[in-house]
Design a protein around this nucleic acid. Structure first.
Lengths: 234, 234
DNA sequence: TAAATAGTGTCTTTAAGACACTATGGA
DNA sequence: TCCATAGTGTCTTAAAGACACTATTTA
C-alpha cells in the first residue's frame, strides 16, 4: 500500500552545513587532512562537536548560506565550495528537539593550509585530523565519511588538488596532496609525467629555496573550477 | 560586507522532483532516451511541462517522497533512485507565486523500457525524447541537462546500464544503452571484452531468438546497486 | 545459400607502473 | 664532499582501439 499523497508543504526548516577540508602538517611535520568543527552550546547534543552551519536566510541561495555560515563560525572564505548531498531523514534530530524537522544541505569546501592557520580557533571552534575525529552530533560523522569518500573519488578525475595549495607550488607539494587524500604513496617520476601530460600546470622560473637540498621548480595553474562541471550554479 | 547572520529558520517549503530516464525505441525502431513529464494545471507556468514531483510529507524521508510522488503521477516504481542535486535559488519561482520559497531535492530514476510502456500516459502525462524536449517550467530544463550530464559520466564508472534492461539481455542490448547515453558508437568486439573483463555479467545458457540472424547469448547480472557507493542512505 | 549479426583473434597505440640513473643546491 | 631531494630515461605491463576474420541462425 502506498503512503497518502501530500497536498500541502509540511513544516520543515532548511539548514546548511559545511565539511571544510584543509591540508596541514602535524607537529612532526607530516601532512594530514584536517577539518574545523564547532562545539554545540545547546541541546540536542550540547557539548558535542558538529559541522559548522546554520539556517538559510529567506532571500539567500543555498551556496551563499553555506559560505556565510561557515565564515561566521570559522572566518574562512574558501575558493572552493560545492554541494555534497542533502540529508533529510525524519529522525535526524532526536525526538523532542525544538527545531522540528530539519533538512540539511551539506557543502564541501577546500581551503589552503595557510588560510586554515588564520582561521579563528577557540574553546568552541577547533581543527581535527580526519583520521582522529570524535563522535559528532546528529548524523555528522556519517556525513564526513561520505565527504571523504567523494573527495577521494573526485581528486582522481577533477582538478581539486590545487585548492589545497597556494598560487605557486612544487610538484612534491602537489603529490603530497594526492598521497594524503588517497592514503598511499605515489611514484614521484610517474606522478610528474602524469600531471605534466594533463597540461593543467605551468612551470614558472621560480624555485622553492630553504630546504637543505636541490630547490624544486615552482608551478602554477590557471585552472579555475568550472562549477557547471561539478554541479549547477544553484 | 557580509550579509547578516540568520538566527531562526525562514519560511520555506521542501519539494522533491524526479528525472526518470528510460530507454525506448522510436517508431522506426531506433533507441533513444526518454523521460516522462507532467503538464502543470496551475500557475505559475500553467500548461507547461514539468518534472514529476510534489511536497515532502512530515514524516517521510526525501527518497521516500521522491518515490511516492513519481509513482502518483506516472505509476512507475523504479528500482534505481538516486539523489541528484538540491536546487534552492530564491528566485526559482517567479515573483508573486503562492508557494513561497521552494527548495527542491531532485532525484534521478532509471526504469526499464517495458516498465515505461506500462506507465500511464494521458493528456497531462507524456514521455518525451531527451533530444526533443519542450521548454520546461521553472528551472527544470537546466535540471534535466544536468541529470543527463551526470548520467553520461556515471555510466563510465558505475554499473547503472543494467537498470535500463530486463533480467536477461544480449550484449548488443547492453551496448545500445551505452551508445545512446554516450551518443557515439562502440566497437562490438572491444565492448564485449571490456564488459566481460569487469566480471559484472554472467552468461546464461539462453539465447535470444526471433531475429533473422544468429541468436545472441543472453547474460544476466547479480549486481545490485550499493547505495553507499553513490550517496548515503538518506 | 545469402544476409545479418554473433563472436574471436591479433596488431597497434596509449597509459600506468617499476626502477635505475643523473643533476644540483645546501650543510 | 656527502646528503637529500629534483628531475630524466627506459623497460614492462595492462588497457583501449582498429579491424580482419570465423561462426551460426533464419529467410
Amino acid at each position: 500500500m502506498s503512503p497518502k499523497s501530500v497536498h500541502a508543504p509540511a513544516a520543515m526548516s532548511v539548514a546548511v552545513s559545511a565539511v571544510i577540508f584543509a591540508m596541514r602538517p602535524d607537529e612532526g611535520g607530516r601532512m594530514h587532512l584536517w577539518l574545523p568543527l564547532v562545539r554545540r552550546t545547546r541541546e540536542p547534543f550540547g557539548g558535542r562537536w558538529a559541522l559548522p552551519g546554520g539556517w538559510v536566510g529567506a532571500d539567500e541561495s543555498l551556496s551563499d548560506a553555506a559560505g556565510r555560515t561557515l565564515h561566521e563560525t570559522t572566518a574562512l572564505r574558501p575558493r572552493y565550495l560545492e554541494q555534497l548531498y542533502t540529508f533529510g531523514r525524519p529522525d535526524r534530530s532526536p525526538p523532542g528537539c525544538d527545531d522540528g524537522r530539519v533538512v540539511s544541505v551539506v557543502y564541501t569546501a577546500l581551503v589552503r593550509g595557510d588560510e586554515a592557520e588564520q582561521a579563528e580557533e577557540g574553546e568552541n571552534v577547533r581543527w581535527f585530523r580526519t583520521d582522529a575525529l570524535p563522535d559528532l552530533a546528529f548524523d555528522h560523522s556519517e556525513i564526513v565519511e561520505y565527504a571523504l569518500w567523494r573527495l577521494r573519488n573526485k581528486i582522481e578525475y577533477a582538478h581539486v588538488a590545487f585548492f589545497f595549495l597556494g598560487e605557486r607550488f612544487s610538484l612534491r607539494q602537489l603529490r603530497e596532496v594526492y598521497e594524503v587524500i588517497l592514503e598511499r604513496t605515489l611514484d614521484p617520476a610517474n606522478f610528474r609525467r602524469r600531471v605534466e601530460a594533463t597540461g593543467t600546470i605551468v612551470p614558472t622560473t621560480e624555485r622553492l629555496t630553504g630546504g637543505r637540498h636541490r630547490p624544486p621548480r615552482l608551478y602554477r595553474t590557471e585552472f579555475t573550477l568550472d562549477l557547471r562541471a561539478t554541479g549547477p550554479s544553484a
